[in-house]
């Protein structure tokens, strides 16, 4: 089995990328891939714990991030710089994750056999 890095770049409600990323993470992990999940650029907004997607009749897909650990998806990496430039802090995030600098993110990405970006 191989390792798969899944990179999220979009805000949670701009499109369907967030939901389709969750589908991809859970399904590929259940088929035995060693999955790491990355949140960069506007993708960091998916992690905000103050989201209220019901307000615009969206499904709260970010709740599924809590299920990642049950699929042995424990590597959740967040771009420190993306958070900083958007004025966000780790305390506002809804999942336990590691904050990494862009060069540290690149080092993690290099460890994965395959990469898929959802944007």
């Amino acid at each position: 089995m191989k390792s798969l890095a899944i990179i999220n770049q979009s805000t949670p409600m701009a499109n369907h990328a967030g939901q389709e990323s969750v589908d991809l993470v859970l399904a590929s992990a259940s088929f035995g891939q060693n999955v790491s999940v990355f949140f960069v650029d506007d993708g960091v907004f998916q992690l905000l714990n103050s989201q209220n997607p019901g307000e615009v009749e969206h499904k709260h897909f970010a709740k599924s991030f809590g299920a990642f650990e049950f699929y042995d998806v424990e590597n959740i990496f967040v771009c420190k710089e993306s958070l900083h430039t958007r004025g966000l802090k780790k305390a506002q995030l809804n999942v336990s994750c590691q904050l990494l600098t862009p060069s540290e993110l690149n080092a993690q990405l290099l460890k994965s056999d395959n990469t898929i970006t959802l944007s």
Binding site: L4, L24, A27, S28, G32, I116
Partner: peptide, 18 residues
């Protein structure tokens, strides 16, 4: 197909391109 087919494909190939 389901995502399982994607996983099999990734396991069988040398590299992937998106």
């Amino acid at each position: 197909v389901g995502i399982g087919e994607l996983v099999s494909m990734l396991n069988e190939s040398d590299r992937s391109i998106q």
